[in-house]
Amino acid sequence: MDSHLTSDRVDMDDNETTTKFIVNGREYSLKIDNRYTLLDILRDHLRLTGAKKGCDLGECGACTVLLDGKVVNSCQILAARIKDKDIRTVEGLSQSETLHPLQLAFIENDGGQCGYCTPGFIMAAYPLFESEEELSTEEIKLSLAGNLCRCNAYGSIIDSVAYALEIKTNE
C-alpha cells in the first residue's frame, strides 16, 4: 500500500474496522474506513485500478467485479459487506501469461474503443462464460444491459462475448 491516503492515516480514524477478504486469490486483512466502497478499496488501497469509477452510483457498470462469483457494481458495495468475501477483478482474470478467453476475444473482436468500459463488460460477461447454458445474442445483450459504453462499441462487445462462448464450446 503505497498510498499516502491509507498508510499514513490508517490508525487515526475511528470509522475504521479491520476486515478480512480475498481479492484475486490473495488474502487481505485491512483497517478500512467504513465509508469506503469496495471500488474505493480496490482502487485506492489495493491500487487495482482496472475497475473504473464512471458514476459511483451503480448506473454505468464500469466498476463491475465479482463478489463470491456474482456480478456487482463495486461502487455500491460498502466496506462492511466484503468481510470474508471472495472478490475477483479484471486483474485477476488471467493468472498466467495466457489471457482469459474473454480477454482474448475482446482483443480479437475489438470489443471497445476507448477501453474505459472494457474491464466492466468483461467482468459482467464472466458468469456467462462460466455458465453451461447456450446463450442467444439477446440473452447476452440482456446480461450486459447494466453496462454503458458511450463509444457505443456495443456491437463488437456482444460479438466479443459471443466469440468467447463459441471458443469455449468448440474446445
Binding site: D2, S3, H4, R43, R47, L48, T49, G50, A51, K52, K53, T89, V90, E91, L93, S94, L99, L102, Q103, L104, F106, I107, E108, D110, G112, G115, Y116, T118, P119, I122
Partner: peptide, 23 residues
C-alpha cells in the same frame, strides 16, 4: 489488432484518475 488491446483488457491501461504519485 490494437496495440493497446492487451492493456485495456487486463486493467493495466491507466486513465486520468488512475494516477498515483508519492505524497
Amino acid at each position: 489488432v490494437r496495440h493497446d488491446g492487451y492493456d485495456k483488457v487486463t486493467g493495466k491501461a491507466l486513465y486520468g484518475a488512475d494516477v498515483e504519485l508519492p505524497g
